[in-house]
Amino acid sequence: MNTTLTHLPSVTLPRNDGMPLDLDWVASVQANTSAIERRAKTLPGRRSVKKDYQAAWLCKAVSCIDLTTLSGDDTAMRVRRLCAKAKQPVRADLLDQLDLPELTTGAVCVYHDMVATAVDGLDGTGIPVAAVSTGFPAGLSPLHLRLEEIRESVKAGATEIDIVISRRHALSGNWQALYDETRAMRDACGPAHMKAILATGELGTLRNVARASLVCMMAGSDFIKTSTGKEPVNATLPVTLTMIRAIRAYHARTGLMVGYKPAGGISKAKDALVYLSMIKDELGDRWLQPDLFRFGASSLLGDIERQLEHHLTGHYSAQYRHPIG
């Protein structure tokens, strides 16, 4: 077992092995959209993090980023460049001043074909490689191929697998099918940790988001994740609130901690702070570590780098002063 597991829940927390599908619980779930939106809308006005605290929180956000490239034109060199950035996400001189020289991102997230390259690029760093699997992003390839893809990715060295759920099962209310399929994927993951992507932008209602969240946790997901980044609407605060409240309910019932990953649409340092405060207030401090929280983001890091330089110098920064990934 390589050292990358230091990022994973199993080190300090019992892994979520799931539970039998509890349809009564799923059916009883409520999510009042207007009330959830109100909470989400007023939170940024209720929480504010300033000066050194803001710098520390932004560094925390960096440590939780799944630095991601998921493009048709990805090449090995492109992925290596990304890995280099994951190892040194913020300029060394800035990190030295912050006294956080070891800061890295949470993981690097790539397509299956790039897993081996990423593993090699991150060798010796402890940074895990996450692979998007299961016919990403639509999840409509044959099930046996999707399961096989997981196994291949794990074999190639991915220690985290981001799977996509079959939206059609959630939309048609076939929770058993969703459970069974997700369970099979979890089995295929073996020791690798599974992040279940709900594609919340395609689930229609927050109630469906809450139900799908519960079913995926019952099926043994280590993380639940909002989106592929390819849906028209990706991570939002109301969706986040709905999903983390499901995580909280699951924890209250089972004692197990499931992680959360918002993905897509979070590109500003300020937004990252709001997400972190929502996690802190709704789930608690324990969830503010990379073993239970990740940002699926590619452009967020650039904005954080500029904010950190501003913090340290008192001058607004420029993008070109920070190395690209």
Binding site: D52, Y53, L98, D285, L288
Partner: peptide, 16 residues
């Protein structure tokens, strides 16, 4: 608290 310490505690701190 230093940035490094806050990085661990994740407190809010003052925002006057």
């Amino acid at each position: 608290m230093t940035v490094k310490e806050i990085f661990e505690t994740m407190d809010y701190g003052p925002a006057p």
